[in-house]
Amino acid sequence: MDIQRLKPHFPWITLLVLVTIVGIADPSFLKPANLLSLAGDIVPLFIMALGLTFAIYIGGIDLSAQSMANMITVVASVYLAPLGIWVAALCILAGFTLGTLSGYLTTRMYVPSFISTLAVGGICFSVAQWLSGNRALNMDATQRNETFGWMIGRTGIVPHELFIAIGLLAICLLIERRTVLGRALKAVGAGELAAAASGLNVARYKILAFAISGGLAAVAGLLFSVKLSGGAPTIANGFLLPAIVAVLVGGTPLTGGVGGVLNTAIGTLIVAVIRASMLYFGIAATQQQMVFGLVLIAAIALTIDRSKLRTVK
């Protein structure tokens, strides 16, 4: 059996192996209720990773996702009272617009995406600090429950976040597999120069990819603020690393072109299981960042397509 043919199957095999190991060590881990609540807790992270997938799929990166989510928690907390349900539209629009800005800077102004998104992240941070007055904000509990209560309840043992996650995954899967946009993004990820040479409007599709990334980071921030019933300019710090890890361990390499949103779903579950198992095996929360940093290095090294990089800068 050829290792290259096995490679696409690594993510779900990893997931199964991890679940089995943790399940043997702690049988109560495998109870459906536990697994479902574990999956429910990771949904904001999953949505952010879903967006990041688009940026990474075309060979870019979106380092603004975390600042974006931070800003949106503040926006949602501030404008829930006057706008009601429409605050969701405002949040998604803000994310989409700032993502478009990152994409525009990257494609039309030739600013590498890690710099442009870092800069847009700086803008988000300023807006968040300005709107919040640098304080932690709380939503009005009754209004939150009336407006967004449906997002965070439970039906039986199934957390409602999971329905949102599955809905968004389905939409993204549809975009990726069944639309011109999805095809175009694959072409750009597989070989940007060739895609441009065959007449594709590469810049437009790349901008869209960053816009989707920004929009989904905003949804992640919105859901997170609803869950916490509040927002603050640094509340979502700690999301970026596991989100990037989720995309990469899922099998979408940094060089883009292969993998996709379904891979990210598996990758996010791997992250969730790693987190849960670290708690079970007595690795304190403070050590998680280190572990994820190392997992990230390993995941990149295993997935990256070196034939696409003539010189590695």
Partner: peptide
């Protein structure tokens, strides 16, 4: 052979 921005970002997290 990992692009430096990602290798260093990961190491920074570590």
């Amino acid at each position: 052979k990992i692009p430096s921005f990602m290798a260093s970002l990961a190491l920074g997290f570590v």
